[in-house]
Amino acid sequence: MSFLDYFLGSRKKTASVAKDRLKLILAHERSADTPDFLPALQEELLTVISKYMPVEKDQISVHMERRGDFEVLELNILFPEQHSPG
């Protein structure tokens, strides 16, 4: 494969590369200006939730994100199969 082939071949896909990079950049920067109470909130949620079901610290994540005119607080709790409630 010549250098030119390589260049033309890769040129085709640069828009999707740009999009993937932007997804990461924006996600990172949007979470960078999250309020500083988030770690504390995460701590407290962990305490409350672990009263009812076994859950580890790294299974809980809290994110704040701006979407248009809204701020969205996103709470993710990951339950391993065996701990599924019910």
């Binding site: 040129r11 085709k12 896909k13 640069t14 828009a15 999707s16 740009a18 999009k19 932007l22």
Partner: peptide, 11 residues
Amino acid sequence: VQGGEMLSLDD
């Protein structure tokens, strides 16, 4: 955009 060289409107 069609050639995949530029971010599309949808993107």
